[in-house]
Design a protein around this nucleic acid. Structure first.
Lengths: 171, 171
DNA sequence: TGGTGGAAGTTGAGATTTCAAGTAACAGCC
DNA sequence: GGCTGTTACTTGAAATCTCAACTTCCACCA
C-alpha cells in the first residue's frame, strides 16, 4: 500500500505536466519582465527602484506618514535587514527620515519627508501609467478579478503568519 | 472637446480604482513572497538563486545542452550583462562551461556540464515540490488556466519584440 | 530586583544586479 | 582592401540584497 506523499517524500516526484509547465513559464516570464520594466521606469524617472517607491507609498498612506521599521518591512514583504539598508539610502536621498519611538527605545519610525511626498506626487502619474499599460489595460475585468483572487491565494500561502501551517513540529 | 489621452498626457492621470489597487497589491505581495521563497529554498538546498537554477534548466532542455549567450539571455528574460556575470559564477561552481562558437568568433556557447546536470537531478524534486505547494496545489484547474492566460498576455506586452508596438515614433 | 529569552533594528561582508563603457568580430558597401 | 554601422559579449564600478552576527532594550518571572 502506498503512503500519502509528503514534502520529505523520496518517491517519484510529482513533476509538472506540460500544461503546468507552460503556466509556470508564463508566470516567470511575466513577473521577470514586469519587475524589470517597472524598475527601469522608476529608476529613470524617479531615481529609485520599484521596491523603494513602494516603501514611500506605504509611508504616504500611513497615519502621520510614519511607520515602525518592522511594520514597514512586513507590509512590503521584505526582511528588516533589507529595509534597514533601503531606508538608509532613502534617508540619504532626503525622502525619508528616522525618528526614535518614544514608547520603545529599540524602536524606530521611518517618516516620509516633504521631499519624499513631492517626489511621489511628481512620479505617481508616470508609474500608474506604466502599470496600466503593462497590466490593467490588457486584461478584461474578469481577468483582473481572477488575477486578484489567484494572487491573494498565493500570497496567503506564503505569509510568515501562515508559514507555520506547514512547520514540521505542527504535524 | 477632450483629446484622447496618451502616455505623455499631463491631464489628470487615470489612478487605479480601489479594486484595482487591491489586485495590484496582491500581485506585488504574491510575487515578492514567492520569489523570495523560491530563492531561499534553492539557495539553501542547491546553493544558487532561482534565476541561476532557471538558466541550468534551459540549458538542460536545449539541444546538445548548450545555448548561445544571447539566446539564453532572451529565454531567461535577462540582460546579456547579467547573464555574463551569472555564467561566470556558474562556471566557477562547475555547472556550466563556455565554448567558442565555430561559425562566429564573437559568439560563446554556455554548456551544461555533467555536474550541472547532476545538481539539477538532485534538486529538481525539491524545487517542483516547492512550486506545487506554493502555487498549483492551491489553485483550481480553472484558476491555473486563467493564470496562464493572464501571464501570457502580460509577458507578450513586455517582450522586447513587441515593445516597439508602443514606441512614440509609431503613433 | 536580577535574570533570561525574545524582539527591534543595525551592521559588514560577500553575492548579485545594474549601468555605462569597452573590445572584438561580422556584414555590407565603396 | 578599407570604412562604417551593428552585433556579441565582457568588464568594472556602484547599487542593492542576503546572511549571519551583533547591540540594545523590553517583558516576564522567580
Amino acid at each position: 500500500m502506498k503512503t500519502a506523499p509528503t514534502s520529505a517524500d523520496h518517491g517519484e516526484p510529482r513533476w509538472l505536466t506540460d500544461e503546468e509547465q507552460r503556466v509556470w513559464r508564463a508566470y516567470i516570464d511575466a513577473t521577470t519582465l514586469l519587475e524589470d520594466h517597472l524598475d527601469r521606469q522608476l529608476q529613470r524617472d524617479a531615481g529609485m527602484p520599484h521596491v523603494y517607491y513602494g516603501l514611500l507609498v506605504m509611508l504616504a498612506e500611513a497615519p502621520d506618514r510614519r511607520l515602525r521599521m518592522t511594520e514597514l518591512a512586513m507590509s512590503a514583504k521584505i526582511t528588516r535587514s533589507r529595509l534597514s539598508h533601503a531606508v538608509a539610502r532613502l534617508e540619504k536621498s532626503g525622502w525619508v527620515r528616522r525618528e526614535d519611538c518614544p514608547s520603545d527605545k529599540r524602536g524606530q519610525f521611518a517618516v516620509l519627508t516633504d521631499e519624499g511626498r513631492d517626489v511621489l506626487r511628481r512620479h505617481a502619474p508616470g508609474h500608474v501609467d506604466a502599470v496600466r499599460q503593462a497590466v490593467f489595460d490588457r486584461l478584461t475585468p474578469e481577468q483582473q478579478k481572477s488575477l486578484g483572487e489567484i494572487m491573494r491565494i498565493v500570497a496567503e500561502g506564503l505569509q510568515p503568519s501562515e508559514a507555520g501551517a506547514d512547520l514540521p513540529w505542527l504535524r
